[in-house]
Structure formats: C-alpha cells, structure tokens
Amino acid sequence: MATPLTADTLLAALRAEGATVIEHPGWRTHNRNHKGAWGPVNGIVIHHTVSTGSAPSVALCRDGYAGLPGPLCHGVIDKAGAVHLIGHGRTNHAGLGDGDVLDAVAAEAPLPTPRRNDTDGNAHFYGFECVNLGNGTDPWPAAQLDAIERASAALCRAHGWTAASVIGHKEWTPTKVDPRGFTMRDMRARIAARLASAPGGPGGTPVPPPPATGGYEPFPGAAFFAAAPHSPVVTAMGRRLVAEGCSAYAQGPGPQWTEADRRSYANWQRKLGFTGSDADGLPGRTSWNALKVPRSG
C-alpha cells in the first residue's frame, strides 16, 4: 500500500520515463474525492475506451456520461502514444472488483481469477483508458503500446512496485473484458524489462520532454504570437498543423502570422480536447509541445 503520488510527482514521473504528456485544463483537481476514499493505492488498471479518436475519447473520459460522471480515469493513452492527463484523485474507472485480487496485487503475487465484486477499486488503483474499440481487431499501434508500458513503469518506479502491480480491468472483475487486443502477461513482461534499466528511452537513456529535445522549437511564449510575428517558426508551425489535418489555410502556410494560422491552431487545440477559451487559436505551452514543431534554423 502507498500514499497516492501528488499531481506534480506523477507528472514528473511520466516525463522522466519518456512519456509524451498532454495536460488538460483542471486535471490536477478533477476527481470524485467527495464520493469516497482515494488511497492507499496498490496498483494500476489498464482499460480500453470502446471509442475512436483522441479528442472524443478524452472528452468522454473527462466528462463521463449519464449514470457515470467523469473523470473515468487519470489518463487517456491515444493511438499516437500521448498520455492525456484528465484527472487526479478518485476516478470512476475500476468500480467494484474482487478483494482477493486486490490482496494479490498488494502482495505482488500471482493473480487469482476474479469471481466476486466486493471491493471498491476506485479507491486503490490508478487507471489508464487506452483508445481502442475493444473488438479484438482494432489495432494497437506500437507507439500506443510503448506509452502504456512507459506510463505504467513510471508509476511503478515512483512507488517502488514491480510489474505485478499492473493489471487489466478484466483481471479485476468478472464483468469486464478489457483490454482486448494484447495480453496483460506480455505487457507486464515489457514493463518488467523497462524497470530493469534506468528510466527513459531505449537502453535506459533518459528522454526529456518536449521542447528540450533538440529537434523541436521551444515554446516562444504567448507574447510572440500576440505581436503577429513574421518568422520561419510560424511557417514550421503551419506545416505541422497541415500534417495533423488541422488546416484552415486557403494558401500557405507562410512566415506571417495570420487569421488562418489562428484558426488552424484552434483546430489543433480542439483535436487535443481543449474547448472554449482554451481553444482560441493562440498557442500555449502544452499544445505547442504536443505539436512538436521542427526547429526552423
């Protein structure tokens, strides 16, 4: 058993493990703590969303639906390998499950087959929802499986847990089938191999988060865009927006910041799951780092 990580520690752990992290507005305080305990925590549950698309899946997990309010997990892992943080604290992801399974996870012992639903999993597990239809044929891209591995290893490393602390939802309760399309046995083997080396990328080489990697433009600051700049950075940004399917350009993109740039960037923000004033088309650090704009010089 362990005290849950603080939001700052969780974020730092994910980044130290080389995960691509997207922070969504209000994630640090978005929870269901008023409905019950959060902690002590014993492990991590992996789910599939039964949905398609990054932004719709993030919105679903953030907001929930009739009868099951959000957040429905702590992070959503999309097919591109990004970990979208949407909640911190108690979330509606695990539900009731088998107390014998919880005991086995806490002891990092072999898992029994779940047979009953007598224990509140929301109090004791972190949860990651992974974008997949869950039909057994929807593919799991390598980047997504890598992100599941990294996110799980990050929390295990932070708590001093082994890979035995990571389970699938179907291993927690007999009423669920997720995740489908890969085996948790194989995933735990991947996590164990990663935990055997230093945190970070292949071979244990630490991978700093964008924009520290040399190939990407660092965030130039909000004032840069407010001044309607003429810069090769704007061109590089526009080309990335086009590549992401967010173009609102009639021509270009070019070096001069225009209304078409703003509208294209707003499309990118909405693709990430931002809404309202958070999708106004003016770049912020989180959305900029997620865009990964190549260095222009």
Rank of each mutant, 00 (worst) to 15 (best):
Q256N: 14
D98M: 10
N117A: 12
P40Y: 10
P71E: 09
P253D: 05
G252C: 10
P202I: 10
R32C: 09
N122M: 10
S54E: 14
F274L: 14
H230P: 00
A158T: 08
A227E: 11
V105I: 15
G200C: 01
A266L: 05
R190L: 14
A13T: 06
A189Q: 13
G70C: 05
G97F: 05
A250S: 15
G215P: 05
A189F: 09
T286L: 10
P211V: 00
K176M: 11
P69M: 10
M187R: 13
P255I: 11
A250I: 01
G284T: 05
G36N: 10
A109T: 08
A222I: 13
A236F: 04
R150D: 04
F182H: 14
P283C: 11
T205E: 12
G39V: 05
G53D: 05
W140A: 01
P209Y: 03
A158N: 02
G127T: 06
F274N: 08
G43R: 00
A153T: 00
P218H: 11
A266S: 09
T20C: 07
V293R: 01
C61R: 00
G245K: 07
V234D: 07
M184P: 01
A212R: 14
A226V: 08
A250M: 08
V234H: 05
G281K: 04
G87A: 10
D138C: 07
H230A: 15
F274P: 00
T286E: 15
L111D: 01
V45L: 15
A193V: 04
E108Y: 04
A164K: 09
K79Y: 02
F224R: 07
G26C: 11
G203L: 08
P4W: 04
G95D: 09
G81Q: 04
A143K: 08
A66S: 15
V50W: 15
Q251N: 14
A266T: 03
A236N: 06
Y265C: 02
F182C: 08
S165E: 00
T162V: 08
D103N: 14
P141F: 04
N132W: 07
H88F: 04
S264H: 06
G203K: 07
